[in-house]
Amino acid sequence: MPQHVQGVIAPGRNEPVRVETIVIPDPGPGEAVVKIQACGVCHTDLHYKQGAINDEFPFLLGHEAAGIVESVGEGVTDVVPGDFVILNWRAVCGTCRACLRGRPWYCFATHNAKQKMTLLDGTELSPALGIGAFAEKTLVAAGQCTKVDPAVAPEVAGLLGCGVMAGIGAAINTGNVGRGDTVAVIGCGGVGDAAVVGARLAGAAKIIAVDIDDRKLEKAREMGATHTVNSRTADAVEAIRELTGGFGADVVIEAVGRPETYEQAFYARDLAGTVVLVGVPSPEMKLELPLLDVFGRGGSLKSSWYGDCLPSRDFPMLIDLHQQGRIDLAAFVTETIGLGDVEKAFARMHEGDVLRSVVVL
């Protein structure tokens, strides 16, 4: 029978979020109901609230989550009730042209649950990134559930569901950072700091963190940055070049998603270097670059979708690295909060003094 749970919705553009009763249907074929244990407050959730993703209000917010599979629908075999899982928003189809070419991390037909969660009056909800995990329980496609070791704290594991995976993957999967490379990361929020961690894991010799906030730069150092640049007081491109023998970085990761910081990334890379865009721009943004410079500098300009990750491969691997002490996922958790504190968490996000607020249920 359908269940009634508490969840956080964004009722309209820039309206305060609120806790409402959500109706969760029984899982249908290929679906699963997951009891949420923890969910990070990601900037993408704020984008949904602001109407910057689309206008399909009301949204059931939250997507960076871990929890326990409660029930599954017909045909589900990869997970069973009782499994501890991290939720992902790119459940691969296995049959599209990308999947058939052996590149499932580029899957062009990712899917979500077919049934809709609703309010008590029947109003259909749009779950953020097809998940909607600021709730006691949520309905997802079973392929969005990745089983991992239950010994890891949910508030830590859930971060791999979005921001931390996006940043680490931008460095390792998309940027192909290698041993001895020089790497610059522009924007040191949660995703940028995760890119710093990814570059360190890959063996980068020099990792330059760039931001306008000294507090964020100090955190980036704690995460593994070897050098920092405050671009409010220094020219980021010139500073990166100075720190790399006048050449520029081998890989520059743009974790802001703005034209001006992308342009910095473009000119801060070495000849034949790589730019990785992992920051999410808003729809109205435009980029203008001299085409001759695009040609003359060579190299690669890449966009990183979810860190080009394959959840079934990457989530368990990163959990293993955390358990071995090789990465500290707990360092990303600034505070734990309740469902009723999400609006305050958005305000703290604006103030820039949190990496992640995590809702614990």
Rank of each mutant, 00 (worst) to 15 (best):
V80C: 02
A52I: 05
L361C: 05
F346M: 03
T44W: 02
T174V: 13
P11A: 01
L321D: 02
P311V: 10
G158M: 02
D328Y: 08
T110S: 09
E20L: 00
A133W: 03
D341P: 03
S312G: 06
C99M: 05
G169F: 12
L355D: 07
F84Q: 03
K35N: 12
R101S: 15
F295D: 00
G132A: 03
V164H: 08
A239M: 06
D181N: 13
V252G: 08
D45C: 10
F57G: 00
L217T: 08
P311Q: 06
R297S: 11
N88G: 03
E343P: 06
Q144V: 12
A202F: 04
A268F: 11
G28L: 05
A205C: 04
V210Q: 13
I319W: 09
Q3A: 13
G178N: 10
R200Q: 15
T228N: 08
I22R: 00
I337Q: 10
A142M: 13
F332S: 00
L201H: 11
P25K: 04
G198D: 06
T336R: 15
V278Q: 03
A142H: 12
P281R: 01
G257P: 08
G28H: 05
L217C: 09
N54H: 11
T244C: 06
T146Q: 09
A91C: 04
E254I: 10
L318V: 10
C96Y: 09
A195I: 10
R348S: 13
L291C: 02
L125M: 08
R200M: 08
T95G: 00
I207A: 03
M317Q: 15
I327E: 01
D213N: 15
A91I: 09
I319S: 05
E70S: 11
V92H: 14
G158Q: 00
S71M: 12
T110Y: 15
A268T: 11
K147C: 04
A249Y: 14
G245I: 01
T118C: 09
D121T: 05
Q3F: 05
V360R: 15
A249W: 12
L125H: 07
C188F: 04
N14K: 15
R101G: 11
V196N: 03
V359C: 03
L61E: 07
N14I: 01
I337N: 14
T146F: 12
G132V: 01
